[in-house]
Nucleic acid binder design. Sequence first.
DNA 1: ATTAAAATTTAGACAAATCTAAAAATTTGT
DNA 2: ACAAATTTTTAGATTTGTCTAAATTTTAAT
Lengths: 217, 217
Amino acid sequence: MTRAEENYIKTIFHLGGNQSQLISTNAIAEQMATKPSSVTDMAKKLAEKDLLNYVRYQGVSLTDLGIKTALSIIRKHRLWEVFLVKKLDFSWDEVHEVAEQLEHIKSEKLIDKIDELLDFPKYDPHGDPIPTKNGEFSERDKQLLSEMPIPSSGVCVGVKDTSAAFLKFLDKHHIALGHEIHILEKEAFDDSLRIKIGDKELQISNQIATNLYVKVE
Amino acid sequence: MTRAEENYIKTIFHLGGNQSQLISTNAIAEQMATKPSSVTDMAKKLAEKDLLNYVRYQGVSLTDLGIKTALSIIRKHRLWEVFLVKKLDFSWDEVHEVAEQLEHIKSEKLIDKIDELLDFPKYDPHGDPIPTKNGEFSERDKQLLSEMPIPSSGVCVGVKDTSAAFLKFLDKHHIALGHEIHILEKEAFDDSLRIKIGDKELQISNQIATNLYVKVE
DNA sequence: ATTAAAATTTAGACAAATCTAAAAATTTGT
DNA sequence: ACAAATTTTTAGATTTGTCTAAATTTTAAT
């Protein structure tokens, strides 16, 4: 597969082309900063290769093979992002551009070894789940507040530390199961988070954030 | 710079295009498994960009800018090779193909961080020197026997461990300054080496190999 | 020194990926 | 339902990097 083909597949996946819903050429063109006519050309080519279903004038959706391909690319992208942050001290906002390049490196052994080196992470630095080698997404029903993307939001669904002291703290700040939490900013110095619950903003330490589970969407 | 352009520059460097000697289009075509006419086309393009000097019917040589560019690519290639071997347990014969891809990743920060992660290595897994960020080759006058490519040969020029016990060992096996050593094979299990001195073969441990300096060429 | 052989360049073509402009199909508004 | 607006496709052109075949230049041989 060429780099251009891979980028199309990835974009279509992100636009929802995996849900057997048809994605318009216009939407793809806009997302990729290209022209609809270019998308049409590529759509035909990728349909020919059985990577997507193309219905003239309607749009495209990924085939099973297309979804598998997309997941493989996304897996690589996100693993490289983790690598850049954890091993090379990149900040979370610097990684995307480089990962866009690294995701196209062709070597199954390489990405599996990177995965191993990172101890098989489940989320990338933005909190997005990393597909497994078999193309399955890691469970996403709960994740630590400290692992969430910034900015983002989620609903509080549990705690890791169940000590009275911790729960009392939560009570005091009106944090409870079912409450929606907006993560606004992370302080680079100590990883403390500025969050918003209801219409109140507060600053919580990393120790708190690593003990609170939230669920996204 | 495109990937194709970078590959031409790198190949011309390896063919000796840095020594202001003209490299023939034929030689380049053969090395790159392409046609001389393609090389001519690219030569014009790269000369236009001031990366090489092109004399019709004579050949090409790299300009200062071309040499700088070549060294940057070679630096990336060799650093990635070290990374693959030291951090991801690739064997020395598996790294080339992947490094061919990784050398084209565009991010100065990335390669500098990789360099740092590896503690600024001077040689790649094949024993070839890694150019510095400023485009200088590391000194190559001596290197540990354990850092030599396999197979290869060099002349014994020094020892690191100067203990009597070690020197006695060397004497016993007729290893002395000035003797040529052929490295034949490395045992993956314990990194011991099978070497040949004169017309005698022997097996030496990694501990010996990490204490013997040899000079190549 | 002339000619034969080899190397190199030119000219023209092609595939990939893109574009513009025009044509066709679909959607929307009343 | 039908015209207008929007979306999508087609047709033809462009750029990059490559090729083949023919023409040109250089090198080698006698």
